[in-house]
């Protein structure tokens, strides 16, 4: 109930007013609603899988790689390229390492024969 009430309230904000929203406000609405989605989804995760949960959140937070990709080849300066390159490299370790280790762990969970 709380969640649907929130969505209703937010949609009203988003569609009312007549003027278009600032990018910040759009982002902020997405952020708040995603927190609610996260809250509900995470409470349903079985405690037995809390370690894989952390590993997979490691992997998906590597999506910050997108931010690095947007600047690495933007041709706005040498220093920007360096920053973007190392950012992309580090985040890529997270993405590949995080997903692979999660996969490895999940493969270990077997039922009683």
């Amino acid at each position: 109930m709380t969640l649907s009430a929130q969505i209703m309230a937010m949609t009203t904000v988003a569609s009312g007013g007549g003027e278009s929203l600032s990018p910040f406000m759009t982002g902020f609405i997405v952020f708040i609603l995603s927190c609610f989605v996260g809250y509900h989804v995470i409470w349903n995760v079985t405690p037995a899988l809390h370690t894989p949960l952390m590993a997979v959140t490691n992997a998906i937070s590597g999506v910050i790689v997108v931010g690095a990709l947007l600047i690495v080849a933007s041709e706005t300066g040498q220093d920007v390229t360096y920053l973007g390159f190392f950012g992309a490299l580090l985040a890529s370790i997270n993405v590949f390492g995080g997903f692979m280790v999660t996969r490895r762990m999940l493969a270990m969970f077997k039922k009683q024969k």
Binding site: F31, V37, G38, H50, I60, V63, L70
Partner: peptide, 27 residues
């Protein structure tokens, strides 16, 4: 990650950041 999403106006980073942020908070 969410804060970075705001700087880039990138909804995916914001969504992901919020999911991961709430996950860690609940744990």
């Amino acid at each position: 990650a969410a804060a970075t999403g705001f700087t880039l106006n990138n909804i995916l980073l914001i969504i992901t950041g919020a999911l991961v942020g709430s996950s860690g908070a609940i744990l």
